[in-house]
């Protein structure tokens, strides 16, 4: 029986990861690629030709001409790894996969991970996720993992200024945990005291403040950053609603079909 619940979470997570990949390719990845044109300092001279770079293969997803070739390389599990400006010297994409395959793999892993975490919270707290309440569970997950941390650390484009990575990761993880605990107290615990404590838990990391960069100048245009922040939050909201609904469905079809 235990395995069936884990399986349900995995199925829902993998399914959501696939849909998330489609949403990302449509709304988010073009902005990341565009921002990478400006990443890496002044010598790259964004200038006027920044928007019309049909010739450069690296940014070809923005041009209709290379779209077919790009699409063909997406379908191949092993393709040319696209270099990332200014990094990747010792890194590179696992197994020589194409950039898209790497993103798909990462989305599958992340989807399975968030699916298991959502199912884990539901099981440990004893509040079942069903088709009826799945979207609400998903929305709460989105609030805890994306919206509330984004108040302090908005989704960043490549090339954006940012504070020390380790500091930001610690703040981010603590904020996700405190926000999740706060949402649990607000939504699932009766009593005014629980709700007040929940609000305090959610507010605490925001009052403390996220680590901020000392110099906020960037080569990346502000409009791109604004579009990206909204696109990232919108696509993750889509991901979490799909995850909550499909987890509710999988719970009813897989977990209880013993």
């Amino acid at each position: 029986m235990i395995v069936r619940y884990l399986l349900a979470a995995l199925v829902a997570g993998l399914f959501s990861g696939v849909l998330m990949t489609a949403a990302q390719e449509a709304r988010v990845v073009p902005l990341i690629l565009h921002a990478e044109e400006f990443e890496g300092g002044d010598e790259e001279a964004p200038a006027a030709d920044g928007a019309e770079q049909g010739a450069s293969h690296e940014h070809s997803s923005l041009s209709a001409v290379d779209a077919l070739a790009e699409f063909a390389s997406f379908l191949s599990p092993v393709g040319v790894a696209h270099a990332h400006d200014g990094e990747g010297e010792e890194g590179g994409i696992m197994f020589g996969m194409s950039r898209f395959s790497g993103t798909l793999l990462a989305n599958l892993v992340t989807g399975a991970g968030f699916g298991l975490l959502l199912a884990g919270v539901s099981l440990v707290t004893g509040n079942p996720i069903t088709v009826a309440n799945g979207a609400l569970w998903g929305a709460a997950g989105w609030l805890a993992v994306h919206m509330l941390p984004a108040i302090g650390l908005p989704p960043e484009l490549p090339g954006f200024p940012a504070a020390e990575l380790g500091d930001r990761q610690v703040w981010w993880v603590l904020t996700v945990l405190l926000s999740a605990a706060g949402l649990y107290l607000i939504f699932l615990k009766p009593g005014i005291v629980a709700k007040l404590v929940g609000i305090v838990l959610i507010a605490a990391p925001q009052v403390y403040g996220a680590p901020q960069p000392t110099d906020i100048s960037s080569n990346v245009p502000a409009v791109l950053g604004a579009e990206f922040a909204v696109a990232a939050l919108a696509t993750t909201l889509f991901f979490w609603i799909v995850l909550g609904l499909s987890l509710g469905f999988a719970n009813e079809k897989i977990a209880k079909a013993a």
Binding site: V29, I32, G91, R99, T103, A106, T110, A112, H146, L153
Partner: peptide, 27 residues
């Protein structure tokens, strides 16, 4: 899984999951 895809400080994991990390707003 989420730590590995989103936060682990490995150049290979980072490059593979690069677009995912940005899209999900991971630091």
């Amino acid at each position: 899984l989420v730590f590995g895809a989103g936060l682990a400080n490995s150049a290979t994991l980072h490059d593979t999951a690069h677009d995912t990390r940005h899209s999900y707003g991971f630091p």
